[in-house]
Design a protein around this nucleic acid. Structure first.
Lengths: 219, 219, 219, 219
DNA sequence: CATGAATGAGATTTCATTCAT
DNA sequence: CATGAATGAAATCTCATTCAT
């Protein structure tokens, strides 16, 4: 890695960590520079200005997030909708786990009042929603999924997938686990899988009758 | 209302609206004063300082939110767990709908780096979690609810209840509805009810809520 | 005492105590009002403004201080210069002891940049100096005092008389005594008296030879 | 001198001059910046904040003042106590003359209500007192000084040495001289020397300083 | 590339004072 | 007499950014 790239990386890491704790407006450029151990003027030099740094971070995160959804959706011709949805869920959680500071920050700062940031978010959110919805619709069409309200499923998915990273302290409160521990993610995936299989997935014969598995998954 | 109280009210309303759009750090005291149409010095006069104003707003919101959960839990001896849970869901959504700006702001700013705010949040979140969990456990004990992972149900509930107000733009994107419209809230409640009845409720007898027709509820 | 006078008194006491610790500029009108337990608006009402309060306090103190010097000087026809000087020293120290907060504050704030305060100080200082000098000169003329530099004696007297109240912490450091304790004042007067008798007072025969008393005064 | 150092110097000079006239609280940072001809933000940049500037000034002055006393005391093995005391007196007066604004300000602001400033003063005052006292005690032990109350001599010395710079207007009033004129300092030193030789010094042999003629020194 | 100095705007807060009640 | 509300000015400090080196 070149010297310049290394400095950029240091700045971005410091920024994520600080934005996460203090928010964008609450973090000063000098604080970032101090934490990164670089001269403050370099931030303007590399990212234009403070907002440029913000956008860079957001784009990085959202690009990765959305592309998980999109690339998996593209596999739909080859694999079942169930399997596809399962992969999406797993990969999105793991992606957020790996970038949990960034994830928390992006999910939160979403509402920021900056034309550029808003447009950025809009674009990626639309894309993400589009593919998730298409995936669910495909599952319904293929009769792999029950004929539920597609919109509500999409929302419930989104709520569950972002929750641990936008409200980490609630997870800690309930589970006494950090949302970025492997153990938590594995357990959480299992729970979501059970919820999907009971609420969304169609049974072999497609009956609507309650599908109580013998094995009780209770912690 | 006395003159002082009126001024306080004006300031708080202006603050909610601005905090919501720009975030706490992104909002200047002067901007609040301007929007409220009062002299800037009065904010220090009434709330001590900017953070005092923030705390006042948070306490107001969290107090109301938590007390809904708590007071309904106290009714558990008189009504069924299902009916109790249903009321909690409904009232929490309506409460947030009425205070949607404040709700959005509080759910987001949760992560703020201020000892006092963090302690405040902790206290209320703990309380809220405690009662919701107790409610779910009671339902399981009474065999009204299936024997699921209590923790996961609590989290899924929280995720669904806060989602429309913490990520309103996602709701708009998916439903093309504002999360503070009556129509949205009614529909959303129905969806949650269906999810509960299929995922959580035991099937001995029907839910107390308006029976779900066989006809699929799909939008 | 009427209610108004009582309030005025409370304000002045609070002001002295605060001015003493924080200085004039460092003390806010509201702080005085709080300490006095009265409404802030009353200070403007009674003293016109903050500076009016300051002047009132200074005049009170300086009037008392100067009048001690003046009234004793007037007795010079009746008593010896030695006895007169002794009374002045004693009374000035006791006066400052009684008003030690005020004394400390006035001696310090002397240098304040306010035309009115400066004029005030000038007037009283001139008067005080005038009478002390006249007293010393009279003693020299009467041959009660040695023919020393009158100016230097005046200055040395002033330095000794104001020292304990303008630099109280130095006194504490050296004597481990508070300058407002009776014990300190008595001891201090004795020391000054000894210094005067050895340095200033003329011996019976007027010799310049060292006047070592047998009794050593060494603490 | 580097650019940064030059700016610092300008700020400190302006601050001394203003603090001296208006006091610390009475002087605004903006006023200092204006007088120094630099941007106001640079004061925070170089000194952290207003109080940091104050502390810097105080430390500078007190360090110099105390070190005069200490370094002379260290010479006591080589020279007589009389000669040592004489040098201390002379150097302290000249040091204050050179920094008369700063001296006046420090002697006055001593009573400031700031933990840091108070601690600072305490430390230096203790040190200064310690060495002066030790010096006087040494003189007594060596029989160079009469067996007087050591404490009182220390206080009288301090009073005389600080007087011209803590109450300059009194000096002006009495002598019609500025305490920072060479002429004043020379005369003042002679007077102090006379007082010492008559009050403190033992009469075995003459003082080391220019012998006092029989002719009276009376102005 | 990197740095320390500098800048001007603006943020929060405090203040003395006034006014209506 | 006394009070709480209100005001406008000013004070301190922070900030993002620029610039010369």
């Amino acid at each position: 890695m070149e010297k310049g790239e290394k400095t950029k990386r240091k700045v971005m890491d410091a920024a994520v960590s600080l934005f996460n704790v203090k928010g964008y407006s609450g973090t000063s450029v000098r604080a970032i520079a101090n934490k990164a151990g670089v001269n403050g003027a370099l931030i303007s030099y590399y990212f234009g200005n403070k907002q440029g740094l913000l956008e860079q971070l957001m784009i990085d995160f959202l690009e990765g997030y959305t592309s998980i959804v999109e690339s998996n959706y593209r596999q739909l011709e080859l694999v079942s909708a169930k399997s596809c949805l399962y992969t999406v869920v797993t990969e999105l959680l793991k992606y957020q786990q790996k970038n949990h500071h960034l994830a928390r920050f992006v999910h939160r700062e979403v509402t920021l009042d900056s034309t550029l940031v808003r447009e950025l978010m809009m674009t990626y959110l639309m894309k993400e929603k589009h593919f998730v919805k298409a995936l669910v619709e495909a599952g319904i069409k293929k009769k792999e999924f029950r004929q539920l309200s597609c919109d509500f499923v999409v929302i419930q998915l989104r709520a569950l997938l972002t929750m641990p990273y936008s409200q980490p302290q609630y997870i800690r409160e309930v589970y006494h686990l950090q949302p970025n521990e492997d153990y938590f993610v594995q357990k959480y995936i299992k729970h979501i899988e059970r919820w999907l299989s009971e609420f969304l997935y169609n049974d072999v014969e497609g009956s609507h009758a309650p599908k109580l598995n013998k094995v009780v998954l209770n912690n």
